[in-house]
Design a protein around this nucleic acid. Structure first.
Lengths: 193, 193
DNA sequence: ACCTGAACACCGTTCAAGT
DNA sequence: ACCTGAACACCGTTCAAGT
């Protein structure tokens, strides 16, 4: 039985996770040690291990809570009609403004690609993101189709494409440095035409 | 002064690097220890350290020698006219056939994104790849332009887009599993139209 | 010069002991 | 229950000693 409230535990976990994120941005995923997080958070080793089972669970928590920007702009706006290009542009803008640095995101993809529970967490997070994008594309899809079923199928297909494009942009940014999202998308569109 | 020939050293380095790649495919970049590579190669710790300065230099060697497929099909074919879509399709096919698994590639991007010399090696490797793609696109670009200068500019621009698309495909494959390259490209083309 | 393998510093994790 | 910090197993790296 927990002696402290859920809110306290949650706040403590975020305190640790945010200290960890600051370390990641400075040193990278692989180079950040528990000792670094201990120092950055001002807590002790044991305190961290009493809130997270191990370093892997802390990584999973960061993936689920901080890997993707909130996309509140897309979620709250109601039945505004946005094309796939509008949605991908909004997504990349949100990333640039309040997402984790692209390098950190790619490092987590790398860790997740090795398999295990971090991969499962990554897929769960991606699935939530896809649902948000699908909802944002729904009004546009309804304009272009006659029945609700094919509108859902269309917005689902385009949501997957939006995620694929965002992944490409993030990977590109991580390796080659920052680039204007609109120009990036335009250059792909022309190459694929 | 080396007592053995360059060819011997080169062969020994590849022997170690290929043993390391087999470990990576089994266990992932982060989980592969020097002890694993020692066991897989049948050599001793010291033998590995007498051919590579450290684990990081071994990683750089793998990036420079094994990260990208050879693309011989694109290089040897002479003045065949290939559109950007043909080139990207050939590139993704080569990846699927004889490149490292997408998960391993993304893990190296992650390590490289943290900065340091691995990042420099990654950029050098990418630059060689871009030169190959540019050469492959040159005949197509010449058909579409009037002077040599703008043909080069065009093939350079498209080569960058091809690399960006390949990165997106690899990242997507690493996180979501294998997917048909042609179908993947088509879904992006439609979303960007 | 190339190689061996024990020794060393440091990492993630555990756990007896405190509150 | 939450937390402390010393102790432990294991990692990358070094180095005296062999050929």
């Amino acid at each position: 039985m927990p002696r402290v409230s859920d809110a306290y535990r949650r706040a403590r976990r975020d305190e640790i996770a945010l200290a960890a994120v600051r370390c990641l941005e400075r040193k990278g995923v692989h180079e950040t040690s528990i000792a670094d997080i201990v120092e950055e958070s001002g807590l002790s080793t044991g305190a961290i291990y009493s809130h997270f089972q191990n370093k892997a669970e802390l990584a999973r928590y960061i993936v689920s809570e901080y890997l993707f920007p909130r996309l509140d702009g897309l979620r709250d706006a109601g039945p505004v009609v946005r094309s796939p290009r509008d949605v991908i542009a909004a997504m990349l803008a949100a990333f640039t403004e309040d997402g984790l640095p692209a390098g950190i995101v790619v490092q987590f993809w790398g860790e997740a690609a090795a398999g295990g529970e971090l991969r499962a967490e990554m897929l769960r997070t991606a699935s939530r993101l896809r649902a948000t994008l699908e909802a944002a594309l729904q009004p546009w899809a309804q304009q272009r189709t006659t029945d609700a079923e094919s509108a859902t199928a269309l917005s689902e297909e385009r949501a997957r494409a939006v995620i694929a494009l965002a992944q490409g942009y993030i990977a590109h940014t991580a390796v080659f440095g920052p680039r204007d999202p609109i120009e990036y998308l335009e250059s792909l569109a022309v190459a694929l035409a």
